[in-house]
């Protein structure tokens, strides 16, 4: 078996760059962590395995950011939300390719690996987003 990638947020984003949405599963208690954590917050185990997660989910809540930080000003106004994936994990992100009036709590969204760029020095992570 090849070496297992570290269970870090950095590695989570590296997988995204490869087009994979990955979570870690605790080998002791079975809890799934998305993002991964080096220490299980449920049972304190440090033994995990990677599992691939579906990027399909439903919108739990959303807002439209009108007043944006300097780095995101070119994109404003933009929609952000929290999406509950099919496996029950929740993850926040921008929502693109949808008119404001069509946003609805409960609607189906899919994670898109295509990056939405905003300039910055650190970190060099891809920025995923959600689309209908």
């Amino acid at each position: 078996m090849s070496t297992v990638e570290p269970f870090t947020i950095e590695q989570f984003y590296k997988f995204l760059q490869q087009g994979k949405l990955m979570a870690s599963k605790c080998q002791k208690c079975g809890k799934i962590h998305l993002p991964p954590r080096p220490l299980c917050d449920n049972c304190y185990s440090q033994q995990f395995s990677w599992i691939q997660v579906s990027g399909k989910g439903k919108l739990v809540t959303y807002t439209i950011i009108n007043v944006a930080p300097a780095q995101f000003q070119a994109l404003a106004p933009y929609a952000v939300g929290i999406v509950e994936l099919e496996n029950g994990q929740k993850i926040p992100g921008m929502i693109q390719d949808i008119a404001r009036e069509q946003l609805k709590i409960g609607m189906a969204l899919t994670l898109d690996f295509g990056t939405c760029s905003a300039p910055q020095q650190w970190p060099a992570w891809p920025r995923y987003c959600f689309k209908p």
Binding site: P35, T61, P92, G93
Partner: peptide
């Protein structure tokens, strides 16, 4: 930082997410 600020979610944005959920 890694999942909220990094994705353009502002401070008012976080409370807006809660407000929308409460309204709903």
């Amino acid at each position: 930082y890694p999942f909220e600020q990094f994705h353009g979610i502002t401070f008012p944005g976080l409370f807006a997410l809660m407000a929308n959920a409460h309204m709903h």
